[in-house]
Design a binder for these strands. Structure first.
Length: 827
RNA sequence: GCGGGCGUGGCGGAACGGCAGACGCGCUGGACUUAGGAUCCAGUGGGGCACACCCGUGGAGGUUCAAAUCCUCUCGCCCGCACCA
């Protein structure tokens, strides 16, 4: 027995060599076709977790595979390095600056990634908290500002009391902060927004172009954008020079309006109640609702409460006077903040009307049934003919939608309108550790964007971190006080920083020009590399990061900074890593540390297990015994290949003219494995079955080795060994590199071309087919592989066993599937 | 409530509508050993003396010569959204 598999030594040696040779650096332009393989960059939280290992192992297999297939592969890594944890750590540990904390973590995690042997081009590393990066984040803000896509407005926004900052809608999950789970509150604040709603339609329509994205993600984005077609209708307030406009998807039911409802925050409320006896009660109600957290406010179970304002408005289609209410279930943020109540045909309105004894009027009558407002138990939202609707009586309601809209348009009281659930992206954050918004406020000139040549607006390092709930920047006079770029007078800087999702919306462009000091990126390089061919990451970003990135890309295309209109051609969303059926977490105490696994078994084993245990989209159940199994497999490979040394590398190994018997069989397995592994990686991302196939190859090679030496062709063994190492290389890059050298090859295995299979070698002479009688397997037989259906039938019907089993029965039908089976249907 | 996904051995998981359970783990037996938690060989869905045969992919129907796979209904679990007018 020669040397054993010493993964520690091998992995350290390989990583050193790769680094010294700069093996994974990639030129921007090449004769080879380009392939951009990208994994979502991590937040440098401290150390890698198994989810990272899975994400980056998947990406690395693809990157190495595509490189071996002859592509010029861009495979970069960086750090989503601005964010709250750094700042919270500073508040907690006083002495540690967020920058220090972040860069320490980056160093630790970079080391870990290198220990995993991931083939990144580290020359392109970026960190979003570096001034050389956030200069361009700020620059991009200015570009959006120039386009009128960045604006400031006062609005009721989501406030997380624990994170002490506002949040975008996308960052609120079920009324709670997606980061810390605190109940989110509503606050009336002036904040910076990006006009993502301007792109709602394009973001929606272009989902159809994304054939390489999982349907699940596309559906989630579609639902999030939430397009709905309908109409806006304006109702005059009775006796006042005011009006209220509602959005409805059912203008065909407008004759059924029996009341109107305003959101508590609606500006009209105060005007309507002023001087009325209800005023006090309503003001109290509005106050109570406003103080409710998002979660109680929007819960489906929350009781619907409404109060009559004392005011009425006039239904424009029939001049009826209907009461105006204020109710907690109407949201100011959606539509116009006001709705019309049609209890007969909307379930919510129905329940509300029953509760408050509001009239119910049928205006859509289904065919073959008679709705009765007094006896109906739920709203009817199906189709039918319009009734009680004046000139529209008898119109099918589907036609009525357009007809009523047209009628209102003619009278100037309404118009067709498309509404979106998507709201503008709130990007201000009242926190320190982020990119400062490059805006200055001047008493004379107002809001002034920082001139591009003044960028970056540096984030000061000398700030005090106190849990005050205010951004430390506010208390930093040196930062706040500045001069107006316009008039030179005294001015104040914006002290809010940008949402970190802004930093991550464009990093994949920066990788093409990571050190460019004069441009966010080089246009030619971006044109060459983008879009990303394969993007890999967790499904938790289905809406957030992936929607923002699509938005950014469309804006950048519109201002001719890039040519692509979608950022990511193909998307792979990997499943979670579970232990004992649950997500790994400190609180559950079921965390398996990548460091421990790498120390005990090596990076190759860790990678192999994670790829073998489950297909990538599915959740993966961690198994220590499964890891053991992969470690055993690599040892098995080692024991098979290592003792051969360079015995197969000499010139004395000649290719035989023909292959017969056991040699032919071995070759068939080798070439079949090449075919299977290639297809599993390339077409299906089924790394688990690819690894299985490689294991089968190894099993076959062990069998082959047992054959007397006189019967074996060394050339066949050499072919099998070379193929095995090449196929395994993307999965287990270190052991294969070492064995590649030991078996007498020159150069890195990772620079070799991917093996091709010979279709001739896979061809079988004879195959076993299945004989079924009435669909049940009854026998098998060996037939020539190329046999036709008719000949197959004849052969099968001549079998003794078939004769026995069909004796005395009537053969109704015989189905023959060449290469597979014959099914005899008997009675 | 709406939308999406998933249910296959003891476990992770394989199966272009065509042999259910590849591969791995675990388990059982054997070999080699001072030893075995190394390695190698054999077996391993259930029933059954059986290499006959029967049953078997959450459940109930259906389509088909043939269904884990397609269709309908149903149960269970997971994920996303959630008063969106």
């Amino acid at each position: 027995m020669k040397g054993r598999y010493d993964f520690k030594e091998i992995e350290a040696k390989c990583q050193k060599a790769w680094s010294e040779q700069d093996l994974y650096s990639v030129p921007d332009f090449s004769d080879r076709p380009k392939y951009y393989c990208l994994e979502m960059f991590p937040y440098p939280s401290g150390k890698l977790h198994m989810g990272h290992v899975r994400n980056y192992s998947i990406g690395d297999v693809l990157a190495r595979f595509k490189t071996m297939q002859g592509f010029n592969v861009l495979h970069p890594m960086g750090w989503d390095a601005f964010g709250l944890p750094a700042e919270n750590a500073a508040i907690k540990h006083g002495a540690l600056h967020p920058a220090q904390w972040t860069y320490d973590n980056i160093d630790a995690m970079r080391t870990q990634l290198k220990q995993l042997g991931i083939s990144y081009d580290w020359n392109r590393e970026v960190a979003t908290c570096h001034p050389g990066y956030y200069k361009w984040t700020q620059w991009l803000f200015l570009q959006l500002y120039k386009q009128g896509l960045a604006y400031k407005k006062k609005a009721a926004v989501n406030w997380c009391p624990s994170c002490a900052t506002v949040l975008a809608n996308e960052q609120v999950k079920e009324g709670t902060c997606e980061r810390c789970k605190s109940d989110v509150q509503k606050r009336e604040l002036e904040q910076w927004f990006f006009k993502i709603t301007d792109y709602a339609d394009r973001l929606l329509e272009d989902l159809d172009k994304l054939e390489g994205w999982p349907d699940k993600v596309k559906i989630m984005q579609e639902n999030w954008i939430g397009r709905s077609e309908g109409a806006e209708i304006t109702f005059a307030v009775d006796g006042m020079n005011e009006s209220m406009t509602v959005f409805t998807t059912r203008p065909d039911t407008v004759f059924g309006v029996t009341y109107m409802v305003l959101a508590p925050e609606h500006p009209l409320v105060e005007k309507l109640i002023e001087g009325k006896e209800q005023a006090g009660k309503i003001r109290d109600f509005v106050k109570t609702v406003r103080n409710q957290s998002e979660i109680t406010r929007t819960s489906t179970e929350a009781e619907k409460i409404g109060l009559f304002t004392g005011a009425y408005c006039i239904n424009p289609v029939n001049d009826e006077k209907v009461p105006i209410l204020v109710a907690n279930y109407v949201l100011m943020e959606y539509g116009t903040g006001a709705v019309m109540g049609v209890p007969a045909h909307d379930q919510r309105d129905f329940e509300f009307a029953r509760k408050y004894n509001l009239p119910i009027r049928i205006v859509i009558q289904p065919e073959g049934a008679e709705l009765d407002p007094d006896t109906m138990t739920e709203a009817y939202d199906g189709e039918g003919l319009m009734v009680n609707s004046g000139a529209f009586n008898g119109t099918p309601n589907r036609d009525g939608i357009a007809a009523v809209t047209r009628f209102l348009e003619q009278k100037g009281l309404g118009r067709g309108r498309v509404n979106y659930r998507l709201r503008d992206w709130l990007i201000s954050r009242q926190r320190y550790w982020g990119a400062p918004i490059p805006i200055v406020y001047c008493d004379k000139c107002g809001v002034v964007p920082v001139p591009e040549e003044h960028l970056p607006v540096m984030l000061p390092m000398d700030v005090a971190f106190q849990p005050t709930g205010r951004s430390p920047l506010e208390d930093h006079p040196g930062f706040v006080n500045t001069s107006c770029p316009n008039c030179g007078g005294k001015a104040r800087r914006e002290t809010d920083t940008m949402d970190t999702f802004m930093c991550s919306s464009w990093y994949y462009y920066r990788y093409t020009s990571p050190r460019d000091e004069d441009n966010a990126w080089d246009h030619d390089k971006v044109r060459n590399w983008l879009p990303v061919d394969q993007y890999i990451g967790g499904v938790e970003h289905a809406i957030l990061h992936l929607l923002y990135s699509r938005f950014f890309t469309k804006v950048l295309k519109d201002i001719n900074l890039i040519d692509n209109d979608e950022p990511f051609t193909n998307l792979l969303t990997q499943g979670m890593v579970l232990k004992d059926g649950a997500k790994m977490s400190k609180s559950k105490g079921n965390v398996v540390s990548p460091e421990d696994i790498v120390a005990a078994y090596g990076a190759d084993t860790a990678r192999l297990f994670i790829l073998f245990a489950s297909p990538p989209e599915r959740d993966l159940e961690w198994s220590d015994q499964g890891v053991e199994g992969c470690y055993r497999f690599l040892n098995r490979v080692w024991r098979l290949v290592e003792p051969l040394g360079d015995s197969l590398s000499g010139n004395n190994i000649n290719r035989p003219a023909t292959f017969v018997g056991i040699n032919r069989d071995m070759r068939r397995v080798t070439h079949h494995t090449v075919k299977k592994v290639t297809e599993d990686i390339d077409k299906r991302f089924n790394f688990n079955t690819a690894v299985s196939a490689i294991m089968e190859l190894v099993n076959a090679m062990y069998q082959f080795r047992e054959v007397p030496e006189t019967d074996r062709e060394p050339w066949v063994m050499k072919e099998a060994v070379d193929s095995l190492l090449l196929l395994l290389a993307p999965f287990a890059p270190h052991i294969t590199e070492e064995l590649w050298a030991k078996t007498g090859h020159q150069g890195s295995i990772h620079a070799q071309p991917w093996p091709a299979f010979d279709p001739e070698a896979i061809v079988e002479d004879e195959i076993t087919i299945v004989i079924q009688i009435n669909g049940k397997v009854r026998d098998r037989m060996l037939v020539p592989a190329e046999i036709e259906a008719e000949a197959m039938k004849e052969l099968v019907m001549g079998q003794n066993r078939v004769k026995e089993l069909t004796e005395g029965k009537k053969v109704v039908k015989v189905i023959a599937v060449p290469g597979k089976l014959v099914n005899i249907v008997v009675k």
